[in-house]
Design a protein around this nucleic acid. Structure first.
Length: 476
DNA sequence: ATGTGC
């Protein structure tokens, strides 16, 4: 293991406070994952986050950690909501990027018979790739509703069901969103991007439940052996990117104004309880709401595609939707005291266990579903939030496989190969807007999501529910 | 991640 990591358990390691760190860094990690490939720069970024000004309560790293802008992807930064800072870099550019899982009522054979037609229909129904847009823009007036209300704004447009909102984290809407803070430039980027997938790691997958570990929870969530599911991974597209870009410029000025000594300018921040801090939170909430509406709009298109291909009885029912790039105010208990904290999760999933007051009634007895996408050639997982997640990680868990190779390294290793044929040999039909993306996103560019999941289960952050195998993949 | 970058 890394010389600066001290063991707390088989699954939990600590960087003791040194230099300017005010709290230790806690890494949820296994020897096996460490040996598979560890990002030295990510560790430095954890140390930086633990050195931020104001009251820092905790800095955590999930087992899928890798280097990001300011805070690593897989990082959790917890600050005091009154005396701490808020940092856009600790949320990331793709505000409320997240995952949604739908279950279908189709038989595997019905789907396989039409898989070529399904792939073509999906590619034409959901604009995919860098710069992907809709043919028509949403008016600013209609857009403001989306920014304020999130997925709920699609109810009146006939693109969402009440049940969808009941199965979306925070009902698909973060409070406190102020559309007046969104610049014309940001809205111009977003106005044609509602219902679009984007590029890179973002995908649409048709999957099959191939293993059930927890039959009772799986049954309650509508998942049994051979159930076909659809997983959607996307975020707030150019709109969220523009909100983050503008916030970072303002935060650099704010950090000077408040005379902060920053460990890294990418972690530019302002006191959470300052005009700059509050403004970022209100703009970030707009980005988060757009991301939820985006995944909901895609769901609507998927329902149209499935009913036209498989008939009106083909149903797509939402299992759950959660983000993994967001900061939110949460009440947590620390040493028997209740505190209001700002929990920045960047490439980390909120995981509230059974009985938590913020869970919708449907999940109050099972705990919240946690959706963990794997790479395109291997398995994805459905987990449940474990009761110990609250004290171990402020109710947080991992978000996916985690990158192992840089995009350039992955492209080099893909030279002279056909990724599509390799996937076909595994029984996976692949569609993609751009060849380079396929190479960047090859299976070997990622860690095995199974190892990441093993680590969060071992650490007591989540429990296993079922495993999903990809059958059809659409990549940006 | 991103109308991909000094």
């Amino acid at each position: 293991m890394h010389p600066s990591l001290h063991p707390l358990s088989e699954y939990k390691w600590e960087v003791p406070p040194s230099r300017r760190m005010t709290v230790p860094g806690t890494l949820f990690l296994t020897e096996r994952l460490y040996r598979a490939g560890f990002d030295e720069k990510a560790l430095e970024q954890i140390v930086n986050a633990a050195s931020l000004p104001g009251r820092v309560e905790a800095v955590l790293a999930m087992p899928d950690i890798h280097c990001g802008y300011g805070l690593p992807i897989g990082g959790v930064l917890v600050t005091d909501s009154a005396e701490g800072v808020v940092s856009p870099g600790a949320v990331g550019y793709d505000i409320n990027c997240g995952v949604r899982l739908l279950r279908t009522n189709l038989e595997t054979q019905n789907l396989l018979e039409k898989r070529e037609a399904l792939l073509a229909a999906l590619l034409s129904a959901v604009p995919t790739g860098v710069g992907a847009v809709q043919s028509e823009a949403l008016s600013r007036r209609e857009g403001n509703r989306v920014l304020r209300e999130g997925a709920a704004a699609l109810l009146r447009r006939g693109m969402a069901e009440r049940e969808d909102l009941e199965r979306t984290e925070s009902s698909g809407s973060l409070p406190g969103a102020e559309d007046s803070l969104i610049s014309d430039r940001a809205w111009e980027r977003g106005s044609r991007q509602l219902g679009t997938l984007g590029a890179g790691n973002h995908f649409l997958e048709v999957q099959r439940v191939v293993e059930v570990y927890d039959p009772e929870r799986a049954r309650l969530w509508g998942l049994t052996q051979e159930t076909l599911t659809i997983m959607v991974h996307t975020g707030s597209r150019g709109l969220g990117h523009q909100i983050c870009t503008e916030a970072l410029e303002k935060m650099e000025r704010a950090a000077r104004k408040y005379r902060f000594t920053l460990p890294d300018r990418e972690l530019a921040c302002a006191p959470a309880d300052s005009p700059e801090g509050r403004e970022y939170l209100a703009a970030m909430a707009c980005g988060a709401n757009f991301a939820w509406a985006n995944r909901q709009a895609i769901t609507h298109r998927l329902r149209e595609v499935f009913s036209s291909l498989f008939g009106p009885r083909a149903a797509l029912e939402l299992v759950y939707d959660h983000g993994h790039n967001v900061v939110r105010e949460e009440a947590h208990r620390i040493a028997a005291q209740k505190k209001l904290l700002l929990v920045h999760r960047k490439g980390a999933t909120r995981a509230f266990p059974a009985g938590h007051s913020e869970l919708p009634p449907r999940y109050s007895s099972t705990g919240q579903p946690v959706l963990i996408p794997g790479d395109m050639g291997r398995f994805s997982f459905v987990l449940a939030a474990a009761p110990t997640a609250l004290q171990e990680s402020f109710g947080s868990t991992c978000h996916g496989a985690g990158r192992l190779l840089s995009r350039n390294q992955a492209v080099k290793r893909a030279k002279g190969r056909s990724i599509e044929r390799e996937m076909e040999e595994k029984g996976i039909l692949l569609g993609c807007a751009n060849r380079r993306t396929l190479e960047e996103e090859s299976s070997e560019a990622y860690k095995d999501a199974g190892l990441v999941v093993e680590a969060v289960v071992g650490a007591g952050l989540s429990t296993l529910v079922c495993r999903l195998q990809p059958l059809l993949v659409v990549k940006g």
